[in-house]
Design a protein around this nucleic acid. Sequence first.
DNA 1: AAAATATGTCAGCTTTATTGACATATTTTT
DNA 2: AAAAATATGTCAATAAAGCTGACATATTTT
Lengths: 160, 160
Amino acid sequence: MAGQSKENTRYVGDTVVHDDDTIDFEIIELLFFAYRDFTSDPDAILEKSGFGRAHHRVVHFVDREPGMTVADLLDTLKITKQSLARVLKQLIDSGYIRQVTGPEDRRQRMLYTTEEGQALARALAEPQSRRIADALAKTGPGARDTVKRFLACMKNGAGD
Amino acid sequence: MAGQSKENTRYVGDTVVHDDDTIDFEIIELLFFAYRDFTSDPDAILEKSGFGRAHHRVVHFVDREPGMTVADLLDTLKITKQSLARVLKQLIDSGYIRQVTGPEDRRQRMLYTTEEGQALARALAEPQSRRIADALAKTGPGARDTVKRFLACMKNGAGD
DNA sequence: AAAATATGTCAGCTTTATTGACATATTTTT
DNA sequence: AAAAATATGTCAATAAAGCTGACATATTTT
């Protein structure tokens, strides 16, 4: 419990302002740098395929949840249908993802990675996984569980 | 040490592929969702000012390191001069950041937040800090230190 | 005096997102 | 059966935030 929640607030106009030492700048910045470098890992691989981070996210989630629908994917990524459309079309045209008409509801398009899509998804995840493993090892025993719980709580709607 | 580093690799073409259970998909996804929601916190505030995330980062770092030069900022953000230029100009024109000619080297422009800039930086950091504090509290005692070390190791050039 | 440095700026391009509008196929409701 | 709702696709226009390349200016270093 170091360095936050002292409730030392003041006002500028009608905006609540917390003084320096009540804000956890340290972890805010660590998170920024950690994520910046974490996401830079797959960039070299993506460049070769001519894809960007948007493609990465789509291939990743479809690989992880085979058969998910377009609506599922939109909900996961929190982007609009039109934003997804271009990226998804490119991945389908390039043979990384294929669509199957839903067996129950024929309006739905269930999404699957092809062999190539699966290989891409894993090639992209590999350096990230390695970075995580190294960081956890250096952090010490028990780190994985603590980090897991912390990250889960950082997410919206983590009721507990 | 659960769920990674089994070194169970195979090849597709000349791309190294790790099988399912050798990749730490769990933490990769937790990190994605945590960061997605963490960065969404300040968005409501930014919209009011007509600024975006790029402005956020600039105001944040200048507030944290008053007197930093343009070159320092470019190095921190890892973006190009031309990308920074537009954002920085808007912040200066709006009165959130001011420039002072370097006292030693008059080519340099040392950057400072104004009162308004400081207030903005802290208003933006506040919900993020609160989210972190809540997550750490829920994770349990000792979480802060573990999370800090883990995040530091996730950054490039963190030679233990 | 020449070269290097720190910054600023113009012009054009790319990626990734946005909104709005509308089309099609299919399922559900009336 | 007709109407409404749903899942998806697509066209067009726009925005934010990055990029490269080129060049200008002021200042410091060589």
